[in-house]
Write a protein that binds this DNA or RNA. Sequence first.
DNA 1: ATTATTTGTCTATACAACTAGACAAAAATG
DNA 2: CATTTTTGTCTAGTTGTATAGACAAATAAT
Lengths: 245, 245
Amino acid sequence: MSETLGQMDRGAGVALWRQIAERLRADIAAGVYPHNARLPSEAELAGRFKVNRHTVRRAIGALAEENILRADRGRGTFVASRPIDYPIGRRTRFSEIVSRQKRQPGGRLVASSEEGADILVAEKLGIAPGSRVIRLETLSAVDGVPLTRATSWFPAERFPGLVAAYAETGSITKALERHGIADYTRLETRISARVAGADDAEHLSLPPGAVVLVSEAVNIDAEGNPIQFARARFAGDRVQIVVES
Amino acid sequence: MSETLGQMDRGAGVALWRQIAERLRADIAAGVYPHNARLPSEAELAGRFKVNRHTVRRAIGALAEENILRADRGRGTFVASRPIDYPIGRRTRFSEIVSRQKRQPGGRLVASSEEGADILVAEKLGIAPGSRVIRLETLSAVDGVPLTRATSWFPAERFPGLVAAYAETGSITKALERHGIADYTRLETRISARVAGADDAEHLSLPPGAVVLVSEAVNIDAEGNPIQFARARFAGDRVQIVVES
DNA sequence: ATTATTTGTCTATACAACTAGACAAAAATG
DNA sequence: CATTTTTGTCTAGTTGTATAGACAAATAAT
């Protein structure tokens, strides 16, 4: 469908090399250039985008830095990564999704704290503002490449040892199991997009300014009580969110 | 929750003024600065973001250009727009969603053509590649402000007069009704994010380089036959996509 | 009426981004 | 083996981005 063609937008606050990099990223994610495929030559791309070859080189350089592309002198430039599908439904579990696609999941704890719930968190968890909540900052990776950075809030009184349980297992599902939550489901998911902030960019190994998908979700237990409010940031190009109805 | 604070990322291909503009946009969409609220002064913002006042001014200027902000000399800078929720589920209809939020929907035909289905479209519609399909390029607005730009494909033999019917009604639901489709449902929706291309940016009145949400969806009739494949691009900040499970 | 605060406009300077052209080095082609 | 294609490196000039400071014009506060 969408050929790699068309004007870039000059002087709009986004450097040309970055626009080209994002375009190539999107094309790779969309399968225009599959795994191990050869990209058009730098001269060819420069012609298509109507920019100087050096500008294309900088875009390719940035993607090579992220191990998305690999450039071989005399041979060409090749695709070195595949995107991953991320289905969202009633029973969304990070590790299940990744394992199903025959890849290696991994989660680690970046930070945690206990704090008073602000208005948004309180509303989502159905508790009074100011109630104690546990905040978990986590980072989940696929095949060692960071994919999503999430902030989760849990009612503190219900899950006293949650931080330790997550740190040990690297999985929220398993950590909740230890607190007697055999099963939980997703109530709603809100998805938006924005440019990555410095903090997310660093943890997700993104060049700051790259696009992240933001997913805000509420999980409930079997009785319908909210047990988790999560805000996850996905590397917008390494993932495609799939909504099944 | 998220205060308007923190470092911007210098020299990452995205100009500081644009990063600040996107940050303010996100804060407005998230309700940190509600409708008609006053923003901190330029000097104050410059201090928070640790940039020169002129850089903040350029960011504000860009948002004012889009009628998201309004700057009054001597008084301050004010929020002039609200975001809209866009729920996705089994029965997603643009006009219903917008009307429910007490706003005025409007769709118009940008372009249309009949063409051979490429591999992706053929797969989604469950037809042979090369089969004739109708392509509709549409633009949907809320209160006169363009919100989403969509490309839809329909099997041509089944919907001969579809283009005229849409041009007349401004609604895909109504156009399909005339072809005997009393009801249809959504099979799956795939959501990704990228930087807006020149074409989308123009139609959505976005500064090129802004973020768009891309939603790819398949709609089926009561018998389960695919009748429409659509790729919609949303202004990433004027909308929040809500997934209900 | 005076003062302080806030946005608007101007000049000047430093640095990043983009373009242009030339040539080297490695690999594929015939 | 010679030729072509491709990525890598260098220099130089132009345009966009960000900083700094000063002052004007409108509004709000005292």
